[in-house]
Amino acid sequence: MNAIDIDGLTYQYQDGTRAIENISLEIPIGSKVALLGPNGAGKSTFLHHLNGLKLPQEGSVNIMGIPLSKKSTKEIRQKVGLVFQDPDDQVFSGTVIDDVEFGPRNLGMSEEEIEDVCRAALGSVGMLEFKKKAPFHLSYGQKKRVAIAGILAMKPDIVVLDEPMSYLDPQGRDEVAALLQGLNFMGKTILLSTHDVDFAASWADTIILMKAGKILATGGPELLVDEEWIRKANLHLPVIARLFRMLDTKKMPRTEQEAARMLYEMIHYNKTF
């Protein structure tokens, strides 16, 4: 069983704009998936179908073997947690702990279970000591972590994030990247949209390129050093790959580790790539 199975998904807005057109995908359990493409590619609309914020007009969406429909929306949302791009759209309670407790309470958990899952969720994102703080006293990156904690407290199998790196400073980006890696180690399937090709190239095991509501290509992170696909998706190569292109190498690394190995072999063994 896959975490996500999508067949022929199409969605059109009332003004006739086709935000998504005939998308078909299989995402295995435990995957780390990065969805990339220009603004207006349909990424957010696609993500909103994964936990029932939007329902398929054509085609089908299956989450952990459960077909998405109006009747199954509540069950799907227990399987898929969606973290919005702007945490201010998601973190709205008077204190951090009240916000994180909101989801589990609506799921009907007991008070004892709510206390346990919320403590664990805040601990996993490094925000337990802030549980009595008002969200508006937090930094943008801290609010993002609280939003993620609120989703984790509902114990989803799949975590979906819309632009989790947007508007974060470098330290905040590193913290979120480490958090996402940790969630995957815990067995969560992670799917996110991003414009950050450097992060996607080093973190994801699956890359999906979208443009104009359609999937251009799906594959491994090597897609992000393929100049033809990068050009079609209106993206740019990772910084390291651009450096090696200037060195006139045929092969371009996508991570710092790959670059270091290639440079070592070029210097010590006169190896060409």
Rank of each mutant, 00 (worst) to 15 (best):
M1K: 03
I4E: 02
I6K: 07
D7F: 00
G8V: 02
T10C: 06
Q12C: 09
Y13I: 07
D15T: 00
R18N: 02
R18Y: 04
A19F: 05
I20R: 02
N22C: 06
N22W: 03
I23S: 01
S24Y: 06
I27F: 06
I29T: 10
G30C: 05
V33Q: 01
T45S: 07
F46P: 03
H49S: 08
L50P: 01
G52Q: 04
G52M: 06
P56V: 10
E58S: 14
G59S: 08
V61S: 11
I63W: 11
I63C: 13
L68S: 08
K70G: 05
S72V: 00
K74D: 13
E75P: 00
I76H: 12
R77A: 11
L82C: 03
F84Y: 14
P87L: 07
D88F: 07
D88Y: 14
Q90D: 12
V91N: 14
S93H: 15
S93E: 15
G94D: 14
G94P: 01
T95P: 08
I97L: 13
D99S: 06
D99R: 11
E101F: 01
L107Q: 14
G108A: 13
S110E: 12
E111G: 07
E115W: 14
A121Q: 10
M127I: 04
K133C: 10
A134C: 09
P135C: 09
F136R: 11
H137A: 11
H137L: 08
H137K: 12
S139R: 12
Y140C: 03
Q142G: 06
K144C: 01
R145E: 02
V146K: 04
G150T: 09
L152C: 03
A153G: 05
A153M: 03
K155T: 09
P156Q: 04
V160F: 05
L161S: 04
L168N: 09
P170F: 11
P170W: 07
Q171C: 01
G172V: 07
V176E: 00
L179A: 03
L179H: 02
L180E: 01
G182F: 05
L183M: 14
L183S: 06
F185V: 12
T189E: 02
L191P: 00
S193Y: 08
D196E: 10
V197R: 14
A204I: 13
L209T: 06
L209H: 05
G213W: 07
A217N: 13
L223Q: 12
E227V: 11
E228N: 13
R231T: 15
K232L: 14
N234M: 08
L235M: 12
R242H: 05
M246E: 15
M252K: 11
R254P: 03
E258P: 03
R261E: 11
L263C: 08
N270G: 13
N270E: 11
